[in-house]
Design a protein around this nucleic acid. Structure first.
Length: 360
DNA sequence: GCGGAGATGGACC
DNA sequence: CTAACGGGTCCATCTCCGC
């Protein structure tokens, strides 16, 4: 059976929800920000609506800079609980629309629809239209959808026309679709990889199909080199499936750069409490704890410790986090800008159902 | 040579 | 003001170490 995968991406999700909650915002530039503890407007842009994007505002940009570009924009702090609720509604609906479902972040998801549409692209397109309609009706939000032979292509297709787009890439169209694109359109090719490819004279995906696989492996390592080779050809057999979380973390910016334990501990304790709550909610125990420090120079350092068996004790988590923090401060004479704590080696606490146990 | 642990960096949302 | 910069997750790679 010819495989058909659908990828759905909500349009400027956070800003769109804010517009929906407050219709007066419609037509105005809206910038949703994650503000830090540094006061007066410091932080980064999470999402900007299209009015703000027209003025050059984009995600990841610093808020003061966005303010300079769009002084008349409405700046709002993120309201995660609100967005999560909306996301759950949408994902709950989507889950039932395919043969398999995979959420990839708060505002996007893959659906394996091969069986449901019997490998028929016309039916897949109809299904995509139906999904867009339902989400618009129920949530008052628009999304963009890509329909293609695999996840890699579906993801690129959903981003091809935005907002409110629908792009269908049938197998016969794959080469024509991919060849003219910049390599950075491939999911997994970011700034660094694109730059290294550019140095090799590879700008487009078409260029990449002509690259020598041996050279790619030499340059990028076995896994990534091989992946680049097949991705350029639109090949990908990654399954659509529910993935268990592998790690959970919390990180925050300190009011000022410091290496005094008493100025860091408070924040760390709060992060631990928050992380432990999330752990409990999701029924996870953990085996590895990491202390994360981002220095004044914005370099990230981590220190970790793995236990011989899993636990879900908050006191263990806090004890280890503090211990690792002290070890870090002893080792390095650096001021800390942001601190974080991470748990990995996750297991299921007794009596907890795995996400995988919930049927489709 | 293989694995787990630990550190780091790239990528994406 | 010639910059200033959140928070979260996943993955790959490298080194070290015990076996």
């Amino acid at each position: 059976m010819r495989r058909i995968v659908l990828h759905l991406d909500m349009d400027y999700f956070y800003a769109a929800i804010e517009e929906r909650e407050n219709p007066e915002l419609k037509g105005r530039p809206v910038v949703v920000c994650v503000y830090s503890a540094r006061g007066e407007g410091k932080g980064a842009v999470s999402t900007a609506n299209y009015e703000a994007r027209k003025r050059g505002v984009s995600s990841g940009m610093s808020c003061p800079r966005a303010k300079k570009l769009a002084p008349e924009a409405v700046f709002l702090p993120v309201n995660f609980e609100l967005y999560e609720g909306v996301s759950e509604n949408i994902m709950g609906y989507l889950r039932g629309q395919g043969n398999a479902f995979e959420q990839g972040g708060i505002d996007e998801a893959f659906l394996e629809v091969t069986g449901r549409v019997k490998s028929d692209y016309k039916k897949a397109e109809e299904l995509a239209r139906e999904i867009k309609k339902v989400i618009r009706l129920r949530e008052g939000l628009s999304c963009s959808i890509g329909v293609a032979p695999n996840k890699l292509l579906a993801k690129i297709a959903s981003g091809y026309r935005k907002p409110d787009g629908l792009t269908v890439v049938e197998p016969s169209m794959v080469q024509g679709f991919l060849r003219p694109m910049k390599t950075s359109k491939l999911w997994g090719v970011g700034k660094k990889t694109a730059e290294e490819l550019r140095e090799m004279g590879i700008i487009t995906v078409g260029d990449l199909t002509e690259a020598d696989p041996i050279t790619l492996v030499e340059k990028f390592g076995k896994a990534k080199g091989a992946w680049l080779y097949s991705a350029a050809r639109g090949l990908d057999d990654d399954k659509v499936e529910v993935r268990e979380a592998a790690q959970l973390s919390r990180i925050t910016t300190l009011p000022r750069n410091t290496r005094k334990p008493e100025e860091i501990e408070g924040a760390l304790k709060e992060l631990v409490r928050d992380l432990h709550t999330a752990l409990k909610e999701q029924g996870f125990s953990f085996r590895t704890v990491s202390f994360i420090a981002v220095t004044a120079a914005l370099k990230t350092h981590t220190k970790s410790r793995t236990l011989s068996s899993t636990t879900d004790e908050e006191t263990v988590l806090l004890g280890l986090a503090l211990e690792l923090m002290e070890a870090f401060l002893k080792e390095r004479d650096l001021d800390i800008r942001r601190v974080g704590v991470r748990v990995s080696g996750l297991g299921r606490a007794a009596g907890q159902k795995s996400l995988l146990d919930y049927g489709r």
